[in-house]
Design a protein around this nucleic acid. Structure first.
Lengths: 301, 301
DNA sequence: TCAATAGTGTCTATTAGACAGTATACC
DNA sequence: GGTATACTGTCTAATAGACACTATTGA
């Protein structure tokens, strides 16, 4: 690919141009990554026969510095000019959850002007899904400043207003994050406007108790995406251990979707995504359950 | 919300901390927006009776400066520290397509280190969908440096390699952009790795003729997203004029999905999304077609 | 009249929801 | 035996695909 040498209106070749290029003339924003690291864990079982309930958990870090000192924030940090955003996200993941190889997906890049009181900060959010049993316990669990919070997301209100040529839909969504005595809550207003055939969505934080910056918005967005993608992709398996029962899998779906599912239909639908093994659960106080493994080739039957 | 005054390990309050905060100590990347402005236009009809074919078009700008001088690029520009990313995207849209109010959605933020030879550039891509009939003709159409290119996206090769605990799927996807004599092509390699239950996707540009920077990757990603979202959302209507026939709508779906659809099933499926009017097409050389309007309330029947 | 599109009816295959009913370990 | 979960069978409703058939215009 030997291209002819092209000169610009100043008579410079590309090489000459790049040598004279001054990158410092414009003010630049800072770029950070925010990690949403989700897991599913077992809650205490009520009686020896009952199965333990599952809960969706999110890793948060207590801020030890201004701004938002003492509040809980998503793990994250600045992207250096010598690493890609993905690399920064991986680095953050390694340092916060001590995990190298896990599922990670870019969610959204948040770029409002007043997001951070220090300076202009643009932040790419990434969602990571971790199998709890593979987690290094030391990270997050005991550390004074990093904790797994049980995450809940509930709709408080839905208001529809008709306009001349469309409507406005305003939903108030409450985020709850709890870890033992600690309980953080926030309300996010999600406004969907449909005006003159154009659809627009905006998110505003109505109130936020104990959650740093605009992280309530990001968490609301992430849970929505997780709920959505679990319906038509296989991401849920990233939350499962290598061997699992179909009941456990169903519980994971139920806790994320926030509704009960019928076992028969669930099994039918997920059958192609799993391979059965010859192993069974034991000592459960009831009929043992067959253990399954994820089948990565399910999409091409 | 009067919070107690909290002091950090240096004894500073948040206000004091922010006053002493020096934003300039770290090197920062530049942040830009890249706009993928899609339309659907009518191609020449072969005979007076035939309906005109539809084509998917994308707006590209000829670069008048280094780097990539003379190549075609997505419209875009730097995000200033005093505007949000959305505002920068809107501004770019206004200046390139002269449209204020249209559908826009953030796609992905590209942050590899060597993307731009000038300096470290992180770029948020936005997809905008425009009804061609609402477009200001002066923008894009005649301008020497801005043109609508017919966009095509075709799979050239699919290769599946089995690994010990998973597989790797490598697809070569060819992007074609043409405007009269001008014809740009690029090949993007999309590698999906499924290894140890972790799914990862990466994109590499294999070759790129006439397309600036890594824009081939971005275009491939955008067309994929468009194809995907048209199946389960109503975004296609942003490409339609206020009144349209169901056949036109079907043609738009067909050109985006790259396959033919059966009219009966298509009409059944889209019926709830549209409202019929009393108007008809005329002078078509065949049976007139009823005109429909988008029904923004379709989701709650 | 006929070419070309518009629009409908219906049969079939597939899938999701509902729920009853059977199976099985462990205390 | 009783409890709690595991798992299957089957009826029904809804939906998608296929395709034949009818309708309607302008040249």
């Amino acid at each position: 690919m030997t291209e002819p040498i092209i000169r610009d209106h100043n008579g410079l070749t590309e090489e000459e141009f790049l040598q004279s290029y001054d990158a410092g003339i414009y003010e630049r924003p800072s770029v950070t990554v925010d990690m949403l690291i989700f897991t599913v864990c077992d809650k205490q079982q009520a009686n020896y026969r009952k199965l333990p309930e599952k809960a969706l958990q999110l890793l948060l870090i207590k801020r030890g510095e201004h701004p938002c000192l003492g509040q809980w924030a998503l793990p994250g940090g600045f992207v250096s000019v010598r690493e890609s955003i993905e690399e920064a996200a991986q680095r953050e993941l390694k340092s916060e959850a001590n995990i190298d190889n896990l599922y990670m997906e870019q969610l959204f890049t948040w770029g409002d002007v007043g997001r951070d009181p220090r300076t202009r900060v643009i932040s790419s959010s990434y969602m990571a899904l971790v199998d709890r049993t593979a987690l290094d316990v030391k990270a997050g669990d005991d550390a004074e400043d990093a904790r797994w919070f049980e995450a809940g997301c509930q709709m408080l209100q839905e208001k529809r207003t008709m306009l001349q040529d469309g409507y406005e839909l305003e939903r108030l969504i409450q985020i709850t994050l709890s870890h033992e005595e600690e309980r953080l809550t926030a309300t996010v207003k999600v406004t969907t406007t449909f005006c003159g055939r154009i659809k627009q969505v905006r998110r505003d934080i109505v109130d936020s108790h104990g959650l740093a910056f605009d992280h309530a918005k990001i968490i609301e967005y992430a849970i929505g995406r997780l709920r959505n993608k679990i319906e038509y992709t296989d991401i849920a398996f990233h939350l499962m251990p290598p061997l699992f029962t179909l009941s456990e899998l169903q519980q994971v779906y139920e806790v994320i979707l926030g509704k009960e599912l019928l076992a028969a239909a669930f099994r039918r639908k997920l059958a192609p995504m799993v391979t059965e093994t010859n192993e069974f659960t034991r000592d459960a106080g009831h009929r043992p359950s067959k253990l399954y493994r994820f089948n990565p080739n399910w999409e091409n039957h």
